[in-house]
Design a protein around this nucleic acid. Structure first.
Lengths: 218, 218
DNA sequence: TATAATTTTTAGGCTTGTCTAAAAATAGGG
DNA sequence: CCCTATTTTTAGACAAGCCTAAAAATTATA
């Protein structure tokens, strides 16, 4: 059974919302994320439920079925591999690849994506530090915490981001908060949640909002 | 003004039919080529005419406007560059890439395609010998003739094909009639148009149908 | 040149994915 | 526990692209 471009986007969105918030995903959350109206989402949810890609009970929110989850993971695999291709081979910046990968992820060919994987040397992470599922849909995710949750004095390495917008990534780039950097917490401002961090011998203050979107491995 | 996936396919088809047959392109020819019904083609022609991508007068067939032609050439550029990528970088065979390129050609990004062009080292031909338009839409096409039009005793080099189906390309592969081979005409059978050719010291008979679809540079 | 055959267009309908407006269900506060 | 606010669903519409059946235009033929 084939899944349309649009159906794939819904599955991917539900997957992300589910792992971000764990529990069931609400109609409104999906409509916000996809910039469509709630009524349109309801229509699509019925369709996806008919295809047994989601578990859906009226007014109760949705979760992915096993098949739906595998489909979502496949799309994510494609997205992330294309991002690696764009950055490693075509010298795009990490803040430029999201929209392009969003298109490329819908190209349907298992052979293509496995060849691409091989060509890229089986990368384990995409340019934003997100893990790339292997060809069997196995995703080995590392335990990461946000800078906001670290305590004063703790050390760690920047290993991912929770926000992929161009604005955010360019800000990180400009302030030197890039993937792989060692970071330590110098101080936390209780008033507004800002965090004073040290990176490359430099002291820097980042807002709570930023701190919540940088992922660290200890 | 954006052009949809479907509109792009119509433009590309009209372009190919036009250069193949030169003159105006008929509704039926398009419907055959795209495997849609003539009535659907008429609908789309009206739409493309409104957008000033084609010149269309009822019952008189169509031609591309300059803008339409540039759009078509851009799509063809993308198609052929992706084919080179698939063959050169991902080790696909020349008979395996057409359908994939058909999908990839609709990814919309001038930067992407120019970076890809550079990454592939500005190839001039795709895996089937078709010329690749440059970033300004300039297409330098070589004068090629079909094997069917060659005379006994003439020599030449296989430089292209007029048919891109898997079946045909696999047949060529199997019989050693691949791109770049030197070929000479040993005999022509008047009865059925078959041609006896010599390639790599081997003598071989090919049907008229095959002879019409192999392109030669003298 | 009139009629037959073919090609093309019109008319009306269907599906997918979207929308707005209104109704129904759920959740929260007193 | 009832009443209000919010969330979700239903109902009805619309655009894009496709279809079938029938009408109109063109081309071919006798």
């Amino acid at each position: 059974m084939t899944t349309s471009f649009t159906e794939e986007n819904y599955l991917k969105t539900i997957y992300h919302l589910n792992t971000d918030e764990n529990g069931t995903v609400s109609t409104n959350a999906i409509s916000e994320s996809l910039h469509t109206k709630a009524a349109s989402v309801t229509d699509m949810l019925k369709k996806l439920a008919d295809k047994e890609l989601i578990n859906y009970a009226k007014y109760q929110g949705v979760t992915l079925t096993e098949i739906g989850k595998q489909k979502a993971i496949t799309i994510i695999r494609k997205h992330r591999l294309w991002e690696v291709f764009l950055v490693d081979k075509l010298s795009f910046k990490w803040d430029e690849v999201h929209d392009l990968a969003e298109e490329l992820e819908h190209i349907n060919s298992e052979i293509l994506i496995n060849r691409l994987d091989e060509f890229l040397n089986f990368p384990e992470k995409d340019p934003h530090g997100d893990p790339i599922p292997d060809k069997n849909g196995i995703l080995k995710s590392q335990e990461l915490i946000t800078v906001a949750k670290m305590n004063i004095g703790e050390h760690g390495k920047i290993s991912g981001v929770r926000e992929h917008s161009k604005d955010f990534l360019q800000y990180l780039e400009k302030t030197g908060l890039t993937l792989g950097c060692e970071i330590h917490i110098i101080d936390k401002i209780t008033f507004d949640g800002a965090v004073v961090v040290g990176i490359n011998q430099i002291e820097q203050t980042i807002s709570r909002e930023v701190a919540k979107n940088i992922l660290i491995s200890l």
